[in-house]
Design a protein around this nucleic acid. Structure first.
Lengths: 406, 406
DNA sequence: CTAGTTTGTTTAGTCGGAAGACGAACTAAC
DNA sequence: GTTAGTTCGTCTTCCGACTAAACAAACTAG
């Protein structure tokens, strides 16, 4: 099926070919190993066409034949599998306190996963960009050393990112109007592959839709559980982009007008109640929050310890946080009707205590019928979700038919 | 550009042809009158291809030649215009107190616009469906009498509608699990054109995106200002559908936990503050709200009168309503980053007093940069927006390349 | 060893868009 | 009035991509 963007954008044979190449590629991704005949039967394409498409894909080393299968009867089929190994995509995730780099080959295998401290560097955009570019270059070199071609590199940033890769605003990094894409692109020496920058939540939700527990879902939302709370939204199978490219800003919904003050100047924002620093402040009131961004993992571990030991104050605080989060999730669920809302970041270790009140709020505030309503789950991806998504967004272009040229 | 749905759905020549037919049709829609050469130059299609496509469209009576143009130099061009007259689409809007029927020809000309009282009928789904079908039949007959072919009929309902046309829930009509599409389809005698049912906000936003002040916008949101408040969302040029088909439920966001009680059992929902019955109750406390659904227009007129005469109580009440509405709009704006939020329904006559506080809240709660942020406007379409959208949704299929067969 | 089955390739055919030539129709200049 | 130049739209040729159908290959069952 062909759908079209706005504006006059006619189709021709190349588009048909690209579409069908993508159809075959994605079928094999989902049903490997499979035979040409099976692809033809399942997609409705002619056997001859499938043969031609497969030949193209094998020539580009995107597919590989893996011997025959002893069938019950008839000529045995030559089975096809994805051969992602010659290509890889790189994703880099920027956080206030650390950087993550991930590389994924076309078959979805993670071929690299690095985490690197970033403390202190974030404050200066120039220094930070240099560090990011250096990490990117190292990742690229490692991938090249393994004889893979790099298809692209995407950087995820917690903030507003314009479609052309300029970080308009990243409060937790202290950035404003940083053309990160150009900087990284130049630092990599204008490589032959595309460099992109995107919002971390947008990328994380892409990773969830590919590799998460609800992989393949057409309607899912990812909530970043970091210092801030942002939403990445996939609707009808495609990332929601918005007019300027800044969707998903859910952190400053007013949950409780009498709630704690928020950095934005108001009170009781979702972030001021359910952001990770707010959670830590609420559960560990004795820890002086000096406002400085350090690695928060130790504090989160302590919160988990107290909850595990059934500390009543901690349990009560987490219940309150969960209810606030549930209100936010309910708004998302009623407004966007997703199949699932995935809690990410620091929400993951706290999920056992947050999920029950979130689900209770969701049930209480559900407008539609019970069945089929949005589920809430904790992410099974680790902290590198945005980095993984950054790589996935590159691979998506291939899946959509833009094959790497020979 | 070809994009693809999920699942294996290969493309073939018919898709290319349909895509290019649609490209030409939409170009003429936006640039009529224009010549074949102009279309070719603008779309990138070959002149010969455009000639062939135009011939097809003329044969199906979707385009028409309108004489030559005396150019400055060279051979004069034969100009083309849309010839929508042989076809029309019908939209019907169901409200608690009235029905609206609209018919639009393919060129976008409204060829019929009826409003019919519906008071008392809504309560019984069977009776109501009969009335709807009767109105539909009359509209169809009228269109046929004018020698137009009916391309389709779509009914807009204020409630949750499943993709196959079952009204799952319509609180303000008191309906639950009514298979309205089948009923109307049967009542029309299984006509040759498609009958569909959809949520009224979904349809209204479609009408706005085609005929509203921001026609052509790829990211807009429509807020129904009726007894309930629902949002219709167009994101990246396509209607947001959600997992089950029930997006846009914004009416029961908690604005003020201490606010007035809502029919849903909670307090301070957006609807309970800014729904039209809530507004009337707030501005005209002396009018005994008997809860019965009657035509609310007289009360709204009275509210407008008081505001016009600068009645302090009325102004204050509308200011409070506007602030609540502004909070709801801010959530939408930050979450979905639309170009514009259109206020519809009874919000339109009240817009002069609602818009300033709405915009103030929006400014105060804006996360992203000032420039390019969401605007808020009152709809310039009248109450029949959903009906118009119902017709438009039928025409969209033609615009997407599914031409009526000869 | 033969009949039957399934796979995947080959061959012929169709469809639709691209490229470029060409005639038509007009203006401008001499 | 004639000629050159320009623009429009059609016509012809070519090519790329899919379909249909025949066919060769390779296996199993009996």
């Amino acid at each position: 099926m062909i759908t079209m963007q706005r504006g006059p954008q006619p189709a021709d044979f190349a588009d048909v070919r690209a579409t069908n190449l993508a159809v075959v590629l994605r079928y094999v991704r989902g049903h490997a190993p499979c035979s040409r005949a099976e692809i033809a039967a399942a997609t409705g394409l002619n056997k001859a066409t499938v043969s031609s498409l497969v030949a193209d894909l094998i020539e580009r080393r995107l597919l590989r034949e893996t011997g025959l299968t002893e069938h019950r009867i008839g000529r045995p089929a030559t089975m096809l599998v994805l051969d992602g190994s010659p290509y890889a995509a790189i994703g880099i995730e920027v956080n206030a306190d650390y950087l993550t780099a991930v590389a994924i080959d076309l078959a979805g295998q993670q071929v690299l996963s690095w985490r690197r401290s970033f403390a202190g560097l974030a404050s200066s955009p120039a220094q930070a960009a240099t560090a990011i570019a250096a990490l990117g270059r190292r990742a690229v070199n490692r991938v090249l050393k393994e004889d893979r071609r790099v298809l692209g590199l995407t950087v995820g940033v917690p903030g507003l990112v314009s479609p052309d890769g300029v970080v308009i605003m990243a409060p937790n990094l202290g950035w404003r109007d940083v053309n990160l894409r150009d900087i990284v692109n130049r630092a990599l020496g204008e490589p032959g592959f595309p460099v992109a920058v995107d919002n971390d939540a947008n990328l994380a939700v892409l990773a969830e839709s590919r590799y998460g527990a609800f992989a393949g879902s057409q309607n899912l939302i990812y909530l970043t559980g970091e210092v801030g709370i942002g939403a990445g939204i996939i609707s009808d199978g495609r990332p929601l982009r918005g007019h300027r490219g800044f969707p998903g800003e859910i952190g400053h919904i007013t949950i409780d007008p009498q709630g704690p003050p928020c950095a934005c100047g108001r009170r009781g924002c979702l972030e001021a109640i359910a952001g990770i620093t707010a959670i830590i402040a609420r559960v560990l009131p004795e820890v002086a929050g000096d406002g400085d961004i350090t690695d928060l993992q130790p504090e989160v571990d302590e919160v988990v310890r107290r909850a595990r030991s059934n500390d009543p104050a901690a349990l009560h605080a987490l219940e309150e946080v969960g209810r606030a989060l549930g209100q936010g999730v309910s708004i998302l669920a009623n407004l966007l009707d997703p199949e699932v809302v995935v809690l990410g970041g620091y929400f993951v270790p706290l999920a056992p205590w947050l999920l029950p009140p979130v689900e209770a709020e969701l049930r209480a505030r559900r407008i539609g019928p019970e069945e089929g309503g949005a589920q809430v789950v904790a992410s099974i991806l680790d902290h590198g979700a945005a980095a993984t998504g950054g790589a996935a967004t590159v691979l998506d272009h291939v899946d959509a038919g833009r094959l790497p040229r020979l």
